[in-house]
Nucleic acid binder design. Structure first.
Lengths: 254, 254
DNA sequence: GGACAAGTCCTGCTCTGACCACCCGATTGG
DNA sequence: CCAATCGGGTGGTCAGAGCAGGACTTGTCC
């Protein structure tokens, strides 16, 4: 199968459970004092499989009957767990086709629900997170972070030179992501990632009309500030870029 | 009952459905081309009931059997819907007692899941949001916002004078909340609210050791900046206060 | 009278089995 | 060769049964 860690409720090797097959008056000698419901346990296992990368994004997860036997629980239990994760945005269920991994965090789903009609709000929040991320990155970045940022920026510029816009946008996005990650604040990075995901889904195409000039300068300056540990300047550089982006958004919808 | 709008799947007056009882070869003349699954419809109705205030926070929602008859769907369907909302943090299920409304937005729940063990990270994220919130509040605040802020600050100070610490902390928290709300960015406010909730749950007690001096100044300055529409200063004032808070946290844990 | 215990009812939890609706690929007919 | 058909597999929904936990009532005993 493919369940995380190979442990499955209903299996002898499993630390908890003792319930999946303990119905109808079975005499289980001495079970662990389990408190959480079965469904929550299944949810947790699936979340684990997803965030650990065992079930990568886009991958189809085992069908209901397989999960039932693999986990040793009833179909209802599996269904409720899947339903919960689907509503949270981690899974996508397609009747007649299968269930697929859609994201690795619940934030995207939660944010997505707020987004409709409020893209501007989301952009502003992203501004807040990215500015703070840049500020903290300048203080906490490792040498390795700096190397990674330089590399991404180089690749971005190379792609720009080749006029390979999709590639450039990809690298550009990754650069911003890595700036925030260099803050070494997991919550901040995760939130930012979720928001970026949603924004990219909303905007999708039509970003090829980049003037490109001012943008470029901002990026170099930002990198330099982070490299030099100048948190004030890093925050300012990030601000400039994002203000520019916000203005462009405002202009787009005019 | 108490279902939103009084419409229930399985009822003649219901616009969609046509499925709840259309099984086993019934001959429905010409049904609407419904696409959404029953569970999602139920989820939507419940979300509606919650966000519309029909089911206020803390209120107990109807028991499963009642929902089944009221909505005209199977118990499984109801359970899956409830489970999804419970996982999302909107509902809290207590076996043997009932199911209760816990929050009005999914964000808190999603954030809560990220937080464990990383209070510092959360505080930093809150800093990001609150600084940006203050900045935007200075630009977009209405006169009413300003009045509300003044009032809260007055009450806070009055409580402080009476040495009524719980009251003071309460008003203080509300003040910060309202600052962010004055940014008129729903997503930002919601995220900030979720984080504050989590932080308060983490910190809980033991906050009575407030020097109080520097804090006071920051608040007045922040209010003044927001009132005057000085976004730069508002952001700076908020920064100062939150840096102070972060430092105190760092000192606390050493 | 009050404290504790048992009983009971209501709540949610899990399992099972049946049937339906949908999608996709293979088969088969033209 | 293409298209209509028919499977098999997937998730969607329903119904009924028994299990498990909390809260309230009742009753007994001190």
């Amino acid at each position: 199968m493919g369940m995380p860690g190979g442990t499955k409720p209903g299996t002898k090797t499993d630390p908890f459970d003792e319930t999946g097959s303990m119905r109808k008056g079975d005499t289980v000698p001495l079970a662990a004092t389990r408190r959480a419901g079965l469904v929550d346990q299944v949810i947790e296992q699936m979340r684990q499989a997803i965030s650990s990368g065992e079930w990568p994004v886009g991958r189809r997860i085992p069908a209901e009957p397989e999960l039932v036997t693999a986990l040793g629980v009833g179909r209802n239990t599996v269904r409720e767990a899947v339903r919960a994760l689907a509503h949270a945005g981690l899974l996508e269920v397609r009747q007649g086709d299968g269930t697929f991994v859609r994201a690795t965090s619940e934030l995207s789903g939660a944010v997505r629900r707020l987004v409709d009609e409020e893209l501007l709000d989301v952009l502003e929040v992203r501004r807040a997170l990215e500015v703070e991320g840049a500020r903290l990155a300048a203080i906490r970045r490792t040498d390795e972070d700096v190397r990674g940022l330089e590399e991404l920026l180089d690749e971005r510029n190379a792609a720009e030179a080749r006029q390979n816009w999709p590639e450039m946008i990809e690298r550009d996005t990754l650069f911003h992501l890595m700036v925030v990650q260099s803050s070494h604040n997991a919550v901040l990075a995760e939130l930012h990632r979720g928001l970026t995901e949603v924004i990219r889904a909303s905007v999708a195409v039509g970003v090829t009309d980049t003037p490109g000039g001012a943008k470029q300068i901002s990026h170099d300056g930002l990198l330099e500030a982070i490299r030099g540990g100048d948190s004030e300047r890093a925050a300012r550089e990030a601000s400039v870029f994002l203000d520019d982006l916000l203005e462009r958004h405002a202009a787009d919808r005019h």
